[in-house]
């Protein structure tokens, strides 16, 4: 993948001046149009999640049914407004100027009413999509908050101390890796109980293995570097060497892993919610997908389409950004993929 070519691919990022390195990476990331586009998509995604959170909190604070959950039996199965021919009246009218203006206004109002259509209970699909973004964002962040510290800490300890610590960590992650992943997640989610907490823990507690392996391998290498020996010779403590000296040099792996794990977690949440184990009573993308699937046979194509597009856009953006990040942060991998 050559979405981004580092300005000086020969210079290793590790050990370089961190601030300058970060700036270079940032500049490099902004240069490709694909990366830029994916950043815009992700910013929109985060904004939608934030907006959804505000709507959700406000409804909770006022103790009202939030607008995305309001049933409206008069407006069931409304297609997206563009497909309802909102300007049919305005276009078909004779040249009567003030009336055309009024009709145009009515058409615009119609266009703004349920722009993404409504579902089988008359709930607004657009608002539910935004709530889905909120939940997807939460799942991505929360699972990362569980899995990343776990994998990072265990990997650092195993790689740095070796010996029995290493044995225990390797045993732990081999065991988790050997259990079929989806079944493991399902089981943890069932143990914790239906709901988002189960999803967080299920995904978080099973996906730290990859990062742990990477960090352990990298720490094993870093441990032998001269800067670590120097730090040790100066009499620094283990904790200080690990977290102040080794951690910054393996941290690029964390960033790459987050960019890969986030979309995976979103997809897994979709799957769990679809199965009825995940989110309860709130419109996550998985719940919407399950609902849309049942209504597809009645000709309600728009909910499935929009959910698909939303998931697709977020995952694609993360994939592209992940590629760019890998090329920028891991010069070794970048030079590999450039042949």
């Amino acid at each position: 993948m050559t979405t981004f070519a580092p300005e000086s691919p020969g210079v290793a990022f590790a050990g370089a001046d961190a601030a300058a390195g970060g700036l270079r990476v940032w500049r490099g990331l902004r240069s490709g149009w694909r990366t830029r586009a994916s950043m815009i998509v992700l910013a929109l995604f985060a904004a939608a999640a934030l907006w959804g959170e505000i709507v959700y909190r406000l409804a909770q604070a006022r103790d009202r049914t939030p607008s995305y959950a309001q049933l409206n039996l008069d407006a069931r199965y409304l297609p997206p407004s563009l497909f309802r021919h909102p300007f049919a009246a305005a276009a078909g009218a004779e040249a009567d100027a003030p009336q055309v203006g009024a009709r145009l206004y009515a058409g615009l109002r119609e266009l703004a009413r349920h722009p993404f259509g409504t579902d089988n209970l008359g709930r607004d699909v657009g608002q539910r999509l935004i709530q889905g973004a909120r939940i997807a964002f939460q799942v991505g962040v929360m699972t990362a908050l569980i899995a990343i510290p776990l994998g990072l800490l265990l990997g650092l300890l195993a790689g740095y101390f070796g010996g029995w610590v290493d044995d225990v960590v390797v045993w732990l992650y081999s065991t988790v890796a050997a259990i079929p992943g989806l079944l493991f997640i399902l089981a943890i989610a069932l143990v914790v109980g239906k709901g988002l907490t189960g999803v967080y823990l299920g995904i978080g507690l099973t996906t730290w293995v990859g990062l742990c392996r990477l960090i352990r391998g990298e720490t094993l290498k870093q441990r032998e570097q001269t800067y670590v020996q120097a730090a040790r010779a100066m009499g620094l403590g283990h904790a200080r060497i690990l977290f102040r000296h080794i951690l910054p040099n393996v941290f690029h792996l964390v960033i790459i892993t987050i960019s890969l794990r986030f979309p995976a977690a979103v997809s897994t949440e979709v799957f769990l919610s679809f199965l009825g184990i995940g989110v309860q009573g709130e419109p996550s993308w998985g719940v919407m997908l399950g609902n849309a699937r049942l209504r597809l046979w009645q000709g309600m194509w728009w909910e499935l389409t929009f959910v698909t597009i939303a998931i697709f856009a977020v995952v694609l953006a993360f994939n592209l950004l992940g590629d760019a990040l890998r090329d920028a942060l891991d010069p070794r991998a970048a030079s590999k993929s450039e042949g």
């Binding site: 979309p263 997809s267 979709v270 799957f271 679809f274 998985g286 997908l289 499935l304 698909t308 998931i311 697709f312 995952v315 694609l316 994939n319």
Partner: peptide, 8 residues
Amino acid sequence: LMSVNYLV
């Protein structure tokens, strides 16, 4: 292809 959800 990678980015389309499996369920979809």
